Simulated scan of single mutants.
Amino acid sequence: MHKIKKDDLVVVIAGKDKDKQGKVISVDTKNDTVLVQGCNMVTKHTKPAAGSPQGGIVNKEAPMDISNVMLVVDGKATRVGFEVKDGKKVRVAKKTGKVID
């Protein structure tokens, strides 16, 4: 079970997009990377294909290491812990003790 999940609001804590907030688009658990909306943008040169007959230069998000993002709860960045409540393992914000999901 990972501390960051899809659709979480996170803040980038390292790199060129430091202090930017965004929603997690996807999490790659195998490589421990995340895609954050509007962060770590790269320009990709695409060839004309069936999906995009024009081709050209496309701006898109590149994966960043999961250690470079922090979960945002109630507008504040916080670390994440786990607790067992009612026989279920849930994520808990370390700063407030609030159950996240």
Rank of each mutant, 00 (worst) to 15 (best):
V58M: 10
V69W: 01
K5Q: 08
V90H: 00
L71K: 00
V99W: 10
E61A: 13
G81W: 09
T78H: 01
I4D: 01
N68H: 10
K47N: 04
V99Y: 09
N40R: 05
V42W: 11
D32Q: 14
N40K: 05
V24M: 13
K23S: 08
G22C: 01
I4Q: 01
M41N: 04
K94F: 09
I66V: 09
K94M: 14
D74S: 15
V12R: 04
G81E: 06
T43E: 15
I25K: 15
A62E: 08
K18Q: 13
K44P: 04
F82G: 01
I100D: 03
F82Q: 00
K88W: 06
G81A: 09
K23F: 12
D101F: 09
G55F: 13
I66C: 04
S67K: 07
G38F: 15
D86L: 08
N68V: 04
D7C: 06
D7T: 11
Q21Y: 13
N40A: 06
V36S: 02
K5H: 12
I25W: 07
S67P: 06
K98M: 05
D32G: 09
G55Q: 11
P48Y: 02
D65G: 12
E83N: 08
P53H: 14
H2D: 12
Q37N: 07
P48K: 03
G56N: 09
V27Y: 09
I13M: 06
Q54M: 04
L35D: 03
N31E: 07
V58E: 11
S67C: 07
G51H: 02
G51K: 02
V27F: 10
D101K: 11
V73F: 01
K18V: 15
T46S: 05
T96A: 13
H2T: 11
G87S: 05
T29M: 07
K85D: 10
K16S: 14
K16E: 12
E61Y: 13
K60A: 02
N59Y: 15
G51M: 00
A14N: 12
K44Q: 04
A50L: 08
K98G: 03
V69E: 00
T29Q: 07
K3L: 02
V80G: 02
F82N: 00
M1N: 06
K95I: 11
V11C: 06
K44F: 05
D101S: 11
K44I: 04
T78K: 00
I66K: 05
E83A: 09
V11H: 02
E61C: 11
E83P: 04
L35M: 12
M70K: 08
T33A: 02
V10Q: 00
F82V: 00
V72H: 08
H2P: 11
A49L: 01
L35P: 03
G87D: 04
D17A: 13
